[in-house]
Amino acid sequence: MVELMVKRLLLLILIASIWTAAGCARRQPPVAGPAAPPPGPPPAAAPAPPPRPAERVEEALPVPAEPLAEDEIARRTLDELNRDSPFKPVFFGLDSAELDEAGRSIVTANAGLLKKYPAWVITIEGHCDERGTAEYNLALGERRAAAVRTYLVSLGLAPDRIRIVSYGKEFPFDPGHTDAAWAKNRRAHFVITSK
């Protein structure tokens, strides 16, 4: 009850502040106000400039558009499951989205687990190491996740149980800058999204 009231109060304050900010912005004149005489006597060394309106210098302030994200308490048990995942990650070669033999055997093992728990829906995250560019890696991670999904489907899993997402090089598993760290970061990571 108290929490609800606090929430409503905060919402009111937010609306009021947005309304006030919008109102102020509207009330501002577009350019200069009326001309004002320059302070002090005109300097002698230079030709006296005729009086001119002072130019108004101003800028608007950005207003955040979104409310804060709400807590995702409902997913906590899944989080616990995912933090100690029964799925093994699949690793890739440099600049590559191809599953090698080791990769295929990991996907096969993960497929067995998915068949054992038919209610589970998963998201396969594609990740890259820092040796690719930020932009291209977003697509490469997608290709990695898609390669895993394609193989899972070929093993008989329903495509609608498998979502994919790429995080490029945004979330390295190992923040190091060594071959060993990079090898760990070029991965497809299995996340259970519902069960």
Binding site: A32, A46, P47
Partner: peptide, 14 residues
Amino acid sequence: RQSVFSKEYTGTDA
């Protein structure tokens, strides 16, 4: 010793 540019500006101190 001539002024080649001369202008006044006003606004807030933000």
